[in-house]
């Protein structure tokens, strides 16, 4: 399959990329990893007139801890997140997530910025970032602005990014001691989008009381969903089989799946419930390690 024609632009700096976006308007699109965009172009479902390839802009791919945040450059490849020791040890939920995105070859090109900015509710990172309470750094003509992840996903395939902004960084607050997280995904086969998936990040005090919990859900609604009811319920409670079961039930209530070839809506709700339970349990296990 062959993409329609377009002009190709290769800026070397972020400001240059932004002015190209401004110059070419809605007809221009950022090319990051391209692992969603290029297939869509091959099917001629996306037909940008201008592709702005940001892969040649230096210093957009990094993973580092700084000022109480994990900072990940927008152009960081999923494979690098998967193999990062920092992420594996301190943000296991992120490692879990990167590992189940598509397949190894796709992860070598796909970027975390693209995964978020594409705003596909079936993508995996949004749920994790919702659970972690991340922030998105959007860079535009007037400099950087911080968008809390809860405000980032506007509707299907639409984010809070302005047309002339580029997602340059994701910031994840470094969790306090006694924290752990996990991502559980049910997929029809390896490499598939989730039938449903749940990310949970929990912080416990010495008595096992939940200081805070974040729960994000993949592909169970038009946008990635934060299970607020479940989160609210757990905060301040001791995490027991009973409270976790109740939180899982509430998370399923927060989900708004629709029926499709991956299964009926009712099944997906049941999955959310089961996967929330599994994710919280694994998160607790990791918090206690």
């Amino acid at each position: 399959m062959i993409p329609p024609s377009f002009e190709y632009l290769k800026p070397r700096t972020v400001p240059e990329a932004i002015s190209l976006l401004e110059e070419h308007g809605e007809n221009a699109k950022i090319l990051s990893g391209g692992q969603s965009l290029i297939p869509m172009m091959k099917f001629r479902l996306a037909r940008p007139g201008w592709l702005i390839d940001i892969n040649h802009i230096p210093n957009l791919a990094y993973i580092r801890e700084e000022g109480g945040y994990l900072k990940i450059g927008g152009l960081t490849r999923e494979a690098d997140i998967e193999s990062s020791d920092l992420i594996r040890s301190k943000f296991p939920v992120l490692h879990d997530t990167a590992f189940v995105i598509a397949d190894p070859q796709v992860r070598n090109l796909a970027t975390i910025g693209g995964n978020l900015a594409h705003a596909d509710p079936a993508n995996d990172h949004p749920a994790t970032m919702l659970a972690l309470g991340a922030q998105v750094v959007a860079t535009g003509r007037r400099g950087e602005r911080i968008i809390p992840i809860e405000e980032f996903f506007v509707s299907i395939f639409t984010t809070a990014l302005q047309h002339d902004e580029i997602l340059t960084e994701i910031r994840v607050p470094v969790p306090p001691p006694g924290s752990g997280g996990a991502y559980f995904k049910v997929e029809r086969k390896v490499g598939d989008f989730a039938t449903a998936a749940v990310a949970a990040q929990a912080t416990l005090d010495g008595q096992g009381v939940c200081q805070g919990v974040g729960i994000g859900m993949t592909n169970v609604g038009p946008i990635p969903i934060k299970a607020r009811t479940a989160e609210g319920f757990l905060k301040g409670k001791t995490l027991t089989e009973i409270t976790i079961a109740e939180a899982s039930r509430l998370a399923a209530g927060d989900a708004q799946p629709s029926s499709d070839s991956r299964g009926p809506a009712e099944y997906k709700k049941a999955l959310v419930k089961e996967l929330t339970k599994r994710a919280i349990n694994r998160a607790i296990e990791r918090a206690r390690q």
């Binding site: 049910v186 039938t195 299964g263 049941a270």
Partner: peptide, 11 residues
């Protein structure tokens, strides 16, 4: 035989 078919039966 998909997971959702099995789940429906279990339900």
């Amino acid at each position: 035989i998909t997971p959702w078919k099995v789940w429906q039966i279990l339900k």
